[in-house]
């Protein structure tokens, strides 16, 4: 039972169809505003004991989080699409036991 045919909606099934566009835009703007506010606060609040050079610059941890997430997601998905990802029945098909029952 896969839903691959159903397109991914950003707020699918949760918001009423009519309101969803406006609300989605509001939520997105809210997210950008709060992220901006956090970076602005970083100008005034700085680490009490920076452990290496770079972490004293405002915005370092914001960049770290964003780049970390992007590199991790891209890297992991890349690995899954090249050599890690296999069909769900990969091990069962290789099994010596043709019925795939294993030890009962």
């Amino acid at each position: 039972m896969s839903h691959d045919s159903i397109p991914i909606h950003e707020q699918g099934g949760v918001l009423p169809a009519g309101k969803s566009q406006g609300l989605r835009r509001t939520l997105r703007n809210l997210m950008f505003a709060s992220l901006g506010l956090l970076v602005a606060l970083n100008l005034f609040i700085t680490p009490h004991d920076p452990h290496f050079g770079l972490d004293q610059f405002p915005g370092f941890w914001a960049l770290f989080g964003l780049l970390g997430a992007v590199v991790l997601a891209k890297g992991a998905k890349g690995a899954a699409h090249t050599f890690l990802g296999k069909d769900e029945n990969f091990y069962e098909n290789r099994s010596e036991d043709p019925r795939g029952q294993g030890i009962k």
Binding site: I8, R28, S34, L35, L38, L66, A69, A73, D87
Partner: peptide, 21 residues
Amino acid sequence: GFTGLGFYLLRLKLVPEAKIN
């Protein structure tokens, strides 16, 4: 917060696939 932004930008890339790793 910025991890969340990363997900927002890549949300279509991260759709789970019916596979094992």
